[in-house]
Write a protein that binds this DNA or RNA. Structure first.
Lengths: 239, 239
DNA sequence: CGCTACGTTGATAGCTTTCAATTCAAGTGG
DNA sequence: CCACTTGAATTGAAAGCTATCAACGTAGCG
């Protein structure tokens, strides 16, 4: 059940059996949530964190005029708001983009883990630091990459992150989002996302249709995106 | 010397005397670095983290075409790359924007702190989580705010962050950056930053001249920026 | 005084948005 | 099995914001 999370951790460092057991004991409850359900509203006090087992979640913020910006997409194995353990409330909302299965980890149990397992604590810290690294890459995308390059970059990122938990092949992966969802990730309008997708398709780089990403030319795609996976920290090493 | 850092911490939770002492013992060396010096290059292995005592630092990433995006500005009291403690190498570079005084904290000493001081460890974790929150706000700015609103927002953010360490008054603060530096924060060109600054000035909101930000109408400025300081987590509370 | 970095301004081009329609796909009910 | 409905995808035309290119102004400095 928490296997995807373990896969994510083990891609960065070894996890001992007792640590694995401690993680399992953190989970208090597992729930299904329907698509479009908001799990956390910005500003809410929080006393548990959400581990995503299955489905797609996002973190987002919005402005008065109704425009919304997604700051991160979450896939199976992501601890979507582990940072709330220290923050106590969130500056963003968390929403299910598809039907999701989520596990709840009460902060008191996470606290218990931090008392007994210093290395695991550092691994949790690391996970939130990797989220921050993803944010930085998005800052670069939004600030300096063209719409095309930015879109290509998102597809590259998701291929690696989904691949890590066995949800992506070299040739593609399921991504049940609408173009409007993509637009909210990319800082674009859905109309322009549509044009960019067409361009990527006609250039033979990627196709996005029917909730599925099909990679046609991986090398060209990564070149267009100027994609360097270093920011995902995919090397196991002592942490 | 590390007072600004203590101010930052204490704005979020009480720090006990023994914790304060532990922080002081973390510092191995203090150095002056000239403006424009790169302290860390993206990809470098790191075994110490940099606490900024004085001056302005930035984290940035660049693209092949030479364009650069700053992902965060750092002011006195910021632990500019504390996240490297778990990451071991950085996905971005760190550069001095002005002459700076920096303190080095070897990771082995930070490790020692995490063994002896669980609460302080959470506070360090919190600091990196707040950096991530700042990243998210920038994602929102770059993705959805207009150039004007985005610029106004940056001035609001810096007023609070500098004010926290006694470096900003209600009416303004020193910010020895060039318009080109601002452009690299804001995802704009320096030419457009110039026009935006003119507009902000003529609208009577803020002035940026001679390395100094003068706030003319705080309320209108925050309204234009749609600024909500919640993302800076400025409430002391048990963490 | 001339160099140099930075700031300012104007004109033009280009990317992205906005607004509006139209097409498509899939599910519903007759 | 086929209208009907609905959300999503697609396309076109026009407007708008920001970039680009180029020139000029300003201030500090050796």
């Amino acid at each position: 059940m928490i296997e995807p999370f373990l896969l994510k951790l083990r891609a960065r460092d070894a996890i001992a059996p007792d640590e694995e057991a401690a993680i399992r004991e953190m989970i208090a409850e597992v729930k299904e949530v329907p698509a479009d359900r908001t799990l956390v509203r910005a500003g809410d006090e929080i006393n548990h964190s959400i581990l995503l087992l299955d489905g797609l979640l996002c973190r987002y913020k919005d402005l008065r005029d109704g425009s919304r910006q997604i700051s991160e997409l979450h896939v199976s194995g992501d601890f979507a708001d582990l940072h709330a353990f220290t923050l106590k409330r969130l500056d963003h909302s968390v929403m299910a983009l598809t039907k999701c299965r989520v596990a709840f980890a009460p902060h008191e149990r996470i606290m218990a883990v931090t008392r007994a397992h210093p290395h695991l604590t550092r691994m949790f810290w690391l996970m939130t630091n990797i989220d921050a690294a993803i944010h930085r890459e998005w800052v670069l995308s939004l600030g300096r990459r063209s719409a095309l390059s930015r879109t290509a970059h998102l597809f590259c990122e998701l291929r690696l992150r989904l691949g890590l938990v066995g949800l992506a092949a070299e040739t593609g992966y399921a991504l049940p989002l609408t173009q409007a969802d993509l637009a909210e990730c990319l800082g674009l309008t859905s109309v322009h996302v549509n044009r960019v997708l067409k361009e990527l398709r006609e250039a033979g780089l990627v196709e996005f249709r029917g909730g599925r990403v099909t990679i046609r030319d991986s090398v060209a795609l990564e070149r267009a995106a100027e994609f360097d996976p270093a920011y995902l920290y995919l090397e196991p090493r002592p942490r």
